Simulated scan of single mutants.
Amino acid sequence: MANSYELKATVRERAGKGAARAARRQNLVPAVIYGDKKPAVTINLPFKEASMTLHKGGFLSHIGTIDLDGEKITVIAKDFHLHPVKDFLMHVDFMRVAADAQLTVEIPVKFINEDKSQGLKLGGTLNIVRHTVEMVVPASNIPEAIIVDLEGAGLGSSQHISAVELPAGCTPTITDRDFTISTIATPGGGAAAAEEAEGEE
């Protein structure tokens, strides 16, 4: 399992808001590691390194390593909190990840061959209905993106999940319908097309 980042951490002996505030005053980010049928552990992360990792992108879909006083723990970030005004990192929730685990992750959608879409060449507009797709994926093979190929896509066309070649072992959490990822609206009809596609959801 290839891990995309590693953060050093120390154990936070006390839980609660007071201990978290004390950590922030020391330029640390309070966090918790839970899951894998083991007790939750409260930790502190260095603010600079944790913030840089967050802003690299893909924080909630990349496997990482927490070096907790020499013990290497494989994790995925499940949630984080930013200061409502100053926008700095305030807290992170990590889940332990076993090598054979299946994870539910939001995978970004990436579009290719927009220059080869007949509809876009004719002045159509690409309306993105889903910027991410929630999928069940193996922890050892989390895809960076779902690729939607727009080559040949015409005016009024819709791109559905069934037309996407999904990475091995990855399945959408929505299984009861062939949901829309994007549409190519006719010139002047973008808003209506987007509303219609969203109505399908």
Results as ranks from 00 to 15, higher is better:
159 Q>D: 09
104 T>D: 10
166 L>D: 00
64 G>P: 01
165 E>H: 01
70 G>Q: 11
164 V>E: 02
113 N>T: 10
72 K>T: 08
130 R>Y: 06
114 E>V: 06
136 V>M: 14
101 A>V: 09
150 L>M: 08
104 T>P: 03
128 I>K: 04
140 S>L: 03
29 V>H: 08
55 H>E: 06
169 G>P: 02
79 D>V: 06
81 H>K: 04
43 I>S: 12
103 L>N: 02
58 G>Y: 01
135 M>D: 02
168 A>Q: 13
47 F>G: 06
100 D>M: 08
164 V>P: 00
107 I>P: 13
77 A>S: 07
99 A>T: 08
157 S>C: 12
119 G>Q: 12
164 V>L: 04
40 A>Y: 02
137 V>D: 07
169 G>A: 02
89 L>P: 07
63 I>M: 13
152 G>L: 03
85 V>M: 08
154 G>V: 09
90 M>A: 07
77 A>N: 09
120 L>V: 14
60 L>R: 12
166 L>R: 00
38 K>S: 11
113 N>Q: 13
89 L>M: 04
45 L>P: 05
94 F>S: 06
112 I>V: 15
45 L>M: 02
83 H>M: 08
31 A>V: 02
108 P>W: 08
33 I>T: 12
110 K>S: 14
169 G>K: 07
54 L>D: 14
159 Q>W: 05
136 V>Y: 03
96 R>Y: 02
164 V>R: 12
34 Y>I: 14
67 D>M: 10
122 L>P: 01
148 V>M: 08
161 I>T: 04
109 V>Q: 12
30 P>C: 13
49 E>K: 12
117 S>F: 12
151 E>G: 00
78 K>I: 11
146 I>N: 00
158 S>D: 09
58 G>K: 04
76 I>H: 08
99 A>R: 06
35 G>L: 06
80 F>D: 03
169 G>N: 00
128 I>Q: 10
163 A>W: 04
33 I>E: 07
157 S>F: 12
94 F>H: 13
142 I>E: 07
107 I>S: 05
155 L>S: 01
127 N>D: 13
104 T>V: 15
133 V>I: 15
36 D>T: 02
46 P>W: 13
43 I>R: 08
138 P>K: 01
150 L>G: 00
106 E>N: 15
